[in-house]
Design a protein around this nucleic acid. Structure first.
Lengths: 117, 117
DNA sequence: CAGAGTGTATACTATATATGACACATGACA
DNA sequence: TGTCATGTGTCATATATAGTATACACTCTG
């Protein structure tokens, strides 16, 4: 669907230029999957891996797990759980913010962070 | 996992008391699944159905689809898509609001709705 | 130029997901 | 009392998910 695989490949190859520990085999080894599988993932021959594997991969490559998951077409389970606990509330909020510019959302985030509730 | 099935059954039987169009068979028919399957769903013998089926069921029973989906352990695909488009932003926001009381979230929703962004 | 390391092709598998088909027993109702 | 509708038990199945295992060909390096 997306360019999840090619993004991973690009990032990994960039890292590899000054650290040969970032070969496909070694990365696969460190995140606990078969090299053949990572190869297929990077070439888009299979769907992006499970959430757990995607997160390990993101960490390994120094990327934001939420962004990587998004690229993989997923939303992290912990966020989903937060939403599921108060579905009406969060559904409204998120749909409300759908078209809001980044700044507006950020302002809300900041307000809540410093919030006096 | 949850009491998705029993909730459905309770709601359906309540509706059935003054409208016999809410028999298991008829409801199944209207939402386009087999009676045997709905029976299994209501008794928790199988996992909650797919998002599409859950939403049709919610509508049929006059319930909020987001709430029904939550009960089924899911988050609606359209919400997920909104999050996936700006993962960092929404991940931050949602985690930030995890512990916030309903009122605080509602206030945010209202602020955004009347928002001047 | 041998050997280690690199990526890839191919084949296989186990579990979960999301249903359908059909038969059956029970109870309501006309 | 016959028949119609109701809910349910059992079996089957297609597709997706999430990988593993093995073998192979190329390349770079000492």
């Amino acid at each position: 669907m997306t360019h999840f695989g090619s993004t991973v490949r690009t990032i990994r190859e960039r890292l590899r230029q000054d650290d040969r520990r970032f070969s496909l085999r070694q990365v696969a080894g460190r995140i606990g999957i078969e090299p053949a599988y990572l190869s297929k993932i990077e070439r888009g021959q299979v769907a992006p891996p499970s959430e757990a594997t995607t997160v390990r991969l993101a960490r390994e490559l120094g990327e934001d797990p939420d962004v990587m998951l998004a690229l993989a077409g997923k939303v992290s389970a912990d966020l989903q759980e937060i939403i599921r606990k108060r579905p009406r509330l969060f559904a409204d909020l998120i749909r409300q913010l759908k078209e809001a510019p980044d700044e507006a959302v950020l302002r809300v985030v900041r307000e809540v962070r410093d919030g006096d509730w």
